Amino acid sequence: MAAMLKHLSQGLRVVFAVAMLTVATYAAAVEMRGDHPDTYVVKRGDTLWDISARFLKKPWLWPEIWQANPQIANPHLIYPGDVISLAYLDRVAMQPGPRTEAAPINAIPLDQVEAFLKDLRVVDEFQQLPYVVSLEGERLRGTQGQVAYVRGIADAQPGQRYMVVRPSQRFTQTRRMSNGEYMVFKEDLDFRGNRLLTETADLNTGWTNIALMEGPLELLGHELVRVNVGTVTRGEVGDVQVSTLLLDEAGREVRVGDRLIAVDAQPYDLQFFPHPPKVQLPVGKAQVLAVADVNLYGGPRDVIAISAGARDGIDNGTVFSIWSNGNQVIDRVEYGLDRSDLSVPKRSRVQLPDEFAGHVMIFRTFDKMSYGLVMEGIKPTRVGYGLKHPDATQ
Rank of each mutant, 00 (worst) to 15 (best):
residue 110 L to P: 01
residue 111 D to P: 12
residue 111 D to V: 14
residue 112 Q to V: 15
residue 112 Q to S: 12
residue 112 Q to L: 15
residue 112 Q to K: 14
residue 113 V to G: 05
residue 114 E to H: 14
residue 115 A to C: 08
residue 118 K to G: 00
residue 118 K to P: 00
residue 121 R to F: 05
residue 121 R to I: 04
residue 124 D to P: 07
residue 124 D to H: 11
residue 124 D to L: 07
residue 124 D to F: 08
residue 125 E to C: 10
residue 126 F to C: 03
residue 127 Q to G: 13
residue 128 Q to C: 08
residue 128 Q to N: 10
residue 128 Q to E: 11
residue 129 L to P: 06
residue 129 L to E: 05
residue 129 L to F: 00
residue 130 P to L: 06
residue 131 Y to K: 12
residue 131 Y to V: 08
residue 132 V to A: 05
residue 132 V to C: 01
residue 132 V to S: 08
residue 136 E to D: 11
residue 136 E to V: 01
residue 136 E to R: 02
residue 137 G to Q: 01
residue 137 G to N: 05
residue 138 E to Q: 11
residue 138 E to I: 05
residue 138 E to W: 06
residue 139 R to D: 04
residue 139 R to Y: 09
residue 139 R to L: 09
residue 139 R to S: 09
residue 140 L to E: 13
residue 140 L to Q: 13
residue 143 T to A: 07
residue 143 T to D: 01
residue 144 Q to A: 15
residue 145 G to E: 03
residue 145 G to D: 02
residue 146 Q to K: 03
residue 146 Q to V: 04
residue 146 Q to M: 07
residue 147 V to H: 06
residue 147 V to S: 05
residue 147 V to G: 00
residue 148 A to P: 06
residue 148 A to K: 04
residue 152 G to S: 01
residue 153 I to H: 04
residue 154 A to V: 07
residue 154 A to W: 06
residue 154 A to R: 09
residue 155 D to M: 12
residue 155 D to V: 10
residue 156 A to Y: 03
residue 159 G to V: 01
residue 159 G to E: 02
residue 159 G to H: 02
residue 160 Q to H: 05
residue 160 Q to S: 10
residue 161 R to K: 13
residue 162 Y to T: 00
residue 162 Y to D: 00
residue 163 M to G: 12
residue 163 M to H: 09
residue 164 V to Y: 00
residue 166 R to C: 05
residue 167 P to H: 02
residue 168 S to E: 11
residue 168 S to H: 09
residue 168 S to P: 01
residue 169 Q to G: 03
residue 169 Q to H: 11
residue 170 R to W: 12
residue 171 F to S: 02
residue 172 T to D: 14
residue 172 T to S: 15
residue 172 T to M: 11
residue 172 T to R: 11
residue 173 Q to W: 04
residue 175 R to G: 06
residue 176 R to E: 08
residue 176 R to L: 05
residue 177 M to A: 12
residue 178 S to G: 10
residue 179 N to S: 06
residue 179 N to L: 03
residue 180 G to E: 05
residue 181 E to C: 11
residue 181 E to Y: 10
residue 181 E to I: 15
residue 184 V to M: 03
residue 184 V to L: 06
residue 184 V to A: 04
residue 185 F to W: 00
residue 186 K to R: 10
residue 188 D to E: 14
residue 188 D to C: 09
residue 189 L to A: 04
residue 189 L to E: 08
residue 190 D to L: 09
residue 191 F to C: 07
residue 191 F to W: 12
residue 193 G to W: 01
residue 194 N to W: 13
residue 196 L to D: 01
residue 197 L to H: 13
residue 198 T to E: 14
residue 198 T to I: 09
residue 198 T to P: 12
residue 199 E to G: 13
residue 199 E to W: 15
residue 200 T to I: 13
residue 201 A to P: 07
residue 202 D to E: 05
residue 202 D to R: 03
residue 204 N to I: 12
residue 205 T to L: 15
residue 205 T to M: 13
residue 206 G to P: 02
residue 206 G to T: 01
residue 206 G to C: 03
residue 206 G to H: 03
residue 206 G to M: 02
residue 207 W to K: 13
residue 207 W to R: 12
residue 208 T to N: 06
